[in-house]
Computed example of a mutant assay.
Amino acid sequence: MTIAVINTSTANIASVLYALDRLGAAYRLVDCPEEAQDCARLILPGVGAAGPAMAALHKSGWVEVLRKETRPLLGICLGMQLLFDYSEESDVALLGLIPGRVERLKSEPKLVWPHMGWNALEAVNSDEPLLNGVEPGARVYFVHGFYVKAGPACQAKAHYGDDITAIARQGYIVGCQFHPERSGAVGAKILENFITNTTSAEARS
């Protein structure tokens, strides 16, 4: 089984590839949908701003393809945010695969903006496949200034001035706001779970 890593030309792609190497996973870095036709799963990584990222996905032909996908898809950090409907960052429409909107994290006196560092995961759905074998309260690494409030799609949350959607799911479409590729053994387990436990062709509703 080969995983297609969508080349969004952002800073964390290399670290995602290294993490897949450590797991012994077969993967291919792809620029366009045609290069991923024989891949079983997709990863959409991202670090940066929503507007330029969506422009790049439109240019490469990924937007319409992702809106019709039936293969398991994992969005990471900005890649998770792109799965939702709309982002305040750049005032831009996103992929619309999971209902919800991306908002700016509130600035508070005792909290540094952006949210950067280790934070604990709190499971909302104990049956979430990405959390198989992950201890309650496990800590993972975040770097983001925008977020999705914990809502119906939230499978795990973290707290940073508000309840942040840390893992979101709609059927076979799943996202991590944190960086599993930078989260040590916990992150490696979460990536392994995506590779081995997520089934395709599930209903989005």
Rank of each mutant, 00 (worst) to 15 (best):
E135M: 13
V124F: 00
F146A: 00
P72D: 09
R101A: 13
Y147T: 13
W118V: 08
P52F: 05
G145V: 03
K110R: 13
A138V: 11
G137N: 10
G133C: 07
A123Q: 09
E122V: 14
V143Q: 00
L94V: 03
Y86H: 14
L121G: 02
V63G: 07
E69F: 01
N119S: 15
G117T: 12
S60F: 10
K59I: 00
I76T: 00
W118N: 07
P72F: 08
A55N: 15
L130G: 03
A56D: 12
E122Q: 14
Y86E: 13
E88I: 05
A120V: 10
A55D: 14
P114Y: 02
P129Q: 07
L97N: 06
T70V: 14
D85C: 04
L95R: 06
A53L: 05
S126C: 03
P109E: 08
G133R: 09
G145K: 00
L82I: 06
P109H: 09
E135F: 09
P109R: 07
N125K: 11
F142C: 10
E128S: 15
G133P: 11
N132C: 10
T70G: 10
L130S: 03
P129S: 06
G75I: 00
E108C: 06
K110W: 10
E128I: 01
L95I: 09
G133I: 06
V112E: 13
L82D: 03
E64W: 09
D127F: 05
I98T: 08
L83A: 11
G79V: 07
N125D: 15
W62R: 00
R104N: 05
L66D: 02
G100W: 10
E122K: 13
P72A: 10
G75F: 00
V102F: 04
L78I: 10
P99V: 05
F142V: 09
Y141E: 04
A120N: 05
E64Y: 09
W118E: 07
E103G: 04
M80G: 03
A138Q: 07
Y141I: 02
L131A: 06
H144I: 04
E89N: 07
G145C: 01
N132M: 07
G145H: 01
P72R: 11
V140P: 11
V102G: 06
P99W: 04
E88K: 08
L74R: 01
K110E: 14
A56R: 15
E88M: 08
E108S: 12
M54V: 00
R104A: 11
I98G: 08
K59N: 12
V92Q: 12
P114N: 05
L95N: 09
V92S: 09
Y141V: 02
Q81D: 11
G100D: 12
D85Q: 14
V63D: 07
R139N: 12
A138D: 05
G79E: 10
P72T: 10
A93K: 15
L105N: 04
N119L: 12
H58S: 12
R101Q: 15
K68F: 00
G145L: 00
G100E: 10
A56E: 13
V102T: 02
R71L: 03
E64M: 12
A123F: 11
S126I: 08
V124I: 14
H115E: 13
V134L: 03
L121M: 03
A93Q: 13
M116I: 15
E69N: 13
L94E: 02
R67Q: 15
E103M: 12
L73F: 04
G145P: 02
G79W: 09
V65P: 01
V124E: 14
R101S: 14
L78T: 08
